[in-house]
Simulated assay, not measured.
Amino acid sequence: MVTAGNSGLGQRIMVLRLRRRMTREILASLVGRSSEWLRQVELHQRPVDRLSVLLRLAEVLRVQDVAGFLALASGEALPSVPPSVARSPETSRAIREALLGSWGDTDGIESPGVAHRVRQDYWSIWRSSARRYSFALSVLPDMLKEARALKARGHPGDAEAFADVHRFAASVLVRMGEGQLALVAIERGLGAGRIEDLASAGAVIRISYGAVLLNNDHADMAARVFRAAGEVLERRGATDDGCAVRALRAEAASATAVAEAARADAVEADRHLMAAEQILAGGPPDLACGSWETTLNRIRSYIRLGRYQPAIRLAERTDVGEQESRDWLAQFFLQIAEAQERSHAPVAAVYSLLQAEEASSEEIRFNPAGGRLAQMLLRHDNALVRRKLWAMLERNGLL
């Protein structure tokens, strides 16, 4: 009934399950299937081919519009959420109040598995869903309120969980151009406890902190934060030289390069880019490691240094066929579109913008970087470019 390539039904099931605060194991057992079966359905890797199972899912998830739910199984796309609804003043106010609320204001708020949902589900949706912005906006207020209760509880492990919740919030907010709120979120995550005791997790949140600082034009401070993350990971690498730690070390080094490029220090930027390469190449001969984030940071560094052609050539050499993260793909194509626009190649830039939109259908609508780039391209005296851009802006409700 639904093909493995259809994104509507699987995403709808995942969203409804999370709203009901159900784990995959619980929902799967209630419909007589395994958690692995449900995981594959939610990630659009297998079909739901029985009407009885669909009806049972609708019943358990308390679907109001059963006909619409079943229509998704026939291949119809999930309807788009207009930005006027998803980013309504009420939604923005709820996120702000949840983030800035008093630490002691936790009466009536519980935190049933918020950390588990963020780690196992929310990050997965953010990286893989075409409508990740709409989803994130729908869960952020409750997620942040539950995190306050988590902080008040003070159980072992809660500091790391609290930090991860706020790192997720900061990642969403910074992509939406809410730099100041993102800074508040990531600083609250850092203040949750002794980040030094969180090993790699502490370095990850430091890298996120540096990215938010850089987005807010604090390049000097961002460079220091990235270096601190690299030092934590270097100590970890003395006992664990696996790909995961090396990829994080390379990410920290290449992020430092981006910050140095933002400071117009080409020598330091190149030095850190070379260090990132050496980290990835310096392990055991039989353990080849790569880092998608390091590739993206290299492109960012080139663009900030005005090296647009090297950025474009690197992109052309990057095989993104195996990259499943819509978040990464959207950022990749937006960066390439910027390099192409600055290289006076507007047709190529529009094509890259369309690739970003294909990776994440809400990217141009919710990410201000996409909208700004579209406005820059409209200045080019090219009828083809303008026609494509007008259609894109109208499609995303930006006209």
Rank of each mutant, 00 (worst) to 15 (best):
A262Y: 05
N216R: 14
A185G: 11
R175W: 00
L100Q: 08
A58T: 02
L384G: 07
S325R: 07
A130F: 05
T106K: 02
I195V: 15
T3G: 13
S128D: 11
A244N: 11
G68L: 10
L334Q: 09
S84D: 05
R206C: 05
G179R: 09
D270Q: 14
L150A: 06
R175M: 12
A203W: 01
V53P: 01
R167P: 00
R132P: 04
I279N: 00
H44R: 14
L100M: 09
G321N: 09
H218C: 05
A222W: 05
S254Q: 05
D327P: 04
E260A: 14
V232R: 13
G193S: 07
G210S: 07
R127I: 00
Q45H: 12
R313P: 00
A169R: 06
S7A: 11
L137Q: 03
A250V: 03
V2I: 15
A253S: 13
L43Q: 15
A339R: 04
Q278S: 08
L399M: 12
H272I: 00
C243K: 04
R131F: 06
S74Y: 02
V347S: 11
T239S: 14
K388Q: 13
N297H: 14
S29Y: 04
V31M: 08
L213G: 02
A219I: 03
D65Q: 08
F135N: 05
E196Y: 12
R24V: 02
S200W: 07
L144T: 06
D381E: 15
A252G: 06
R395L: 13
R206S: 07
A253L: 10
E187A: 13
G68K: 07
L16H: 11
P285V: 14
L373G: 08
I125H: 06
A136C: 11
V66E: 01
S34Q: 07
S7N: 09
S88H: 08
G202D: 08
S74T: 11
A192C: 10
R167H: 03
V15E: 08
Q335F: 09
F69V: 01
R17Q: 01
D220Y: 10
L43Y: 07
A345P: 00
V15T: 10
A262V: 02
P346N: 09
E160F: 02
H218L: 07
A337W: 05
L150Y: 03
D49W: 02
N297Q: 04
S361Y: 01
R342E: 07
A356W: 12
L51R: 13
E97V: 10
S360D: 15
V114L: 00
A391S: 13
A339F: 07
N382Y: 04
A275Q: 11
E357T: 06
W126G: 02
D327R: 15
R271T: 09
A262H: 12
T23W: 06
